[in-house]
Design a protein around this nucleic acid. Structure first.
Ligand code: TTP
Ligand code: MG
Length: 457
DNA sequence: GCCCAAAGTCA
DNA sequence: TGACTT
DNA sequence: GGGC
């Protein structure tokens, strides 16, 4: 609730009186976040062209006035403080240093600054300065959590992860609208080329650096170079380069999720990653699969991929050839046959997913060899038909399977953001003497694994 | 001066 | 096992 | 690079 006390010039402050006519002298708020009131007020005052900001007061001023029966002078204790001014440090509890302890909106208010800091982080990554890169990523991360647009450097007093260097960058952006150091890094030839190389799925820092060192400067040069050996993933990265560079909409993500649910009607399918955080576009779709029967998740991914392959929907799968893993598993991969309990798989799928959804869910347990051969031959025939038809597109879809008992850890581990996950694990390790993964929590002192007993709504 | 998240899969 | 991915 |  929020109400304004408007008074005429006669009882307003002298300054307001001179403005003449009716003007707002007091704003009284109840049960509002002070910052919300101030944000609202600034919006309103901009629109109405208020020359002098009115007093912004707690409801206590009004009740005091009513008790005494007349308008009391404002005391400081009545005032709602504008946190966005400079109080971030002192009044309000200080901002925590771990990203996992901060609320961060999906659409934040400081893109200009975070983009600059992330450019510096990227530059540091290209020169393998991991520590500096991380520092700039943390700096960007903390700015994303601020509930106000940074307009003055004083607003950042007491904000963690912003040291001399980051502050200098922000200051320069505030003063000049651009920052020399950032622009230098952005225009640096090697950085630009590295960025392009690493935009290919499957190409990381080492490969990009090698290509650059070998004199390559563009993707066409890489493609044309006979000495360049590509992994399967990189081949796919080149093949579908343009489609994979297009953002995935949340509508597409939901459609894919629904199609996967239809293929596995007895499993639980959860969309994770950026879409779970409320983003409306992403670079891929992240899906977490589990099964309510403990152990029911075993072989789930193989089963799903069989279905998708039958549909001809799989353009790429980063998946151990079923033949190798499953048939040879018996003696060789004893530790890995239990690993069948927690799998992940990166795919490129053809959209729209084929709508013929015949979920024949009884597995052909006999003749595993034959089944696998069938799968691989399907797979290769579909690979031959690589080019998406008009109206189709390639989309990256990541699948993660976990046992029901680990669902909570998997969900926590795959929802992100990346910085959130890193800081959550650093927090576990540094503050709680524990090791967190997307499988479980490990107590370093008691030397034991912690699990969660739960039910999945 | 030390630390910086953790883990699965491939070639 | 290093490189790449999440 | 920034926190401790
Ligand atoms: C890249 C990355 C992701 N993750 C986790 C958190 C991510 O939210 C989740 C999914 O990874 P991503 O799909 O790479 O990230 P995202 O979904 O948040 O962003 P985008 O919209 O670009 O797809 O996996 C890590 O734990 N470490 C990492 O290095
Ligand atoms: Mg994602």
């Amino acid at each position: 609730m929020c109400c304004t006390a408007a008074s005429s010039g006669a009882i307003g402050s002298p300054a307001m009186s001179r403005a003449g006519g009716t003007s707002v002298t007091h704003v009284v708020a109840e049960r509002n976040q002070p910052k919300d009131v101030w944000i609202w007020l600034k919006k309103v005052s901009a629109k109405c062209g208020l020359e002098v900001l009115p007093e912004v007061l707690d409801i206590s001023w009004l009740t005091d006035c009513m008790e005494s029966g007349c308008r009391l002078p404002v005391e400081d204790r009545h005032r709602l403080k504008d946190e966005s001014e400079e109080e971030v440090c002192t009044k309000s509890p200080s901002i925590p240093i771990y990203a996992c302890q901060r609320k961060t909106p999906v659409n934040h208010l400081n893109h200009h600054f975070t983009c600059a800091l992330e450019a510096l982080a990227e530059g540091a990554e290209f020169s393998e300065s991991d520590g500096r890169a991380l520092a700039f990523r943390r700096a960007a991360s903390v700015l994303k959590s601020l509930p106000f647009r940074v307009a003055k450097i004083e607003q950042l007093r007491g904000v963690p992860c912003l040291g001399k260097h980051s502050i200098r960058i922000i200051q320069e952006l505030l003063d000049l609208g651009a920052c020399k150091e950032v622009e230098q890094i952005r225009s640096n030839e090697m950085n630009k080329v590295m960025k392009v190389f690493m935009s290919v799925w499957g190409v990381g820092l080492k490969t990009a650096t090698r290509w650059y060192r070998d004199g390559l400067r563009s993707l066409s040069e890489v493609r044309a170079s006979p000495s360049v050996k590509l992994t399967r993933m990189q081949q796919a990265g080149f093949e579908y380069y343009r489609d994979l560079a297009r953002p995935v909409s949340h509508v597409e993500a939901d459609t894919i999720t629904a199609a996967i649910r239809a293929l596995l009607p007895n499993s639980f399918i959860t969309i994770t990653g950026g879409f779970r955080r409320g983003k409306d576009a992403g670079h891929d779709v992240d899906l977490l699969l589990t099964h309510p029967d403990e152990g029911g998740e075993v072989g789930l991914l193989s089963k799903l991929l069989e279905h998708l392959n039958e549909q001809g929907s799989v353009m790429f799968q980063d998946y151990r050839d079923n033949t190798y893993k499953e048939t040879n598993a018996a003696g060789f991969n004893e530790s890995k046959s239990t690993m069948d309990r927690f799998e992940r798989c990166f795919t490129i799928l053809r959209l729209p997913l084929s709508p013929r959804v015949t979920s024949h869910k009884d597995d052909k347990v006999t003749g595993r060899q034959e089944v696998n051969e069938a799968v691989t031959s399907h797979y290769t025939t579909n690979l031959r038909k690589k080019i998406p038809e008009p109206g189709e597109r390639a989309v990256r879809v990541d699948f993660v399977v976990c046992p029901y008992s680990q669902y909570a850890f998997a969900l926590l581990g795959w929802t992100g953001s990346q910085q959130f996950e890193r800081d959550l694990r650093r927090y576990a390790s540094h503050e709680k003497a524990m090791i967190l993964s997307s499988h479980h929590l490990f107590d370093k002192q008691q030397v034991r694994v912690l699990t969660i007993s739960h039910t999945l709504h």
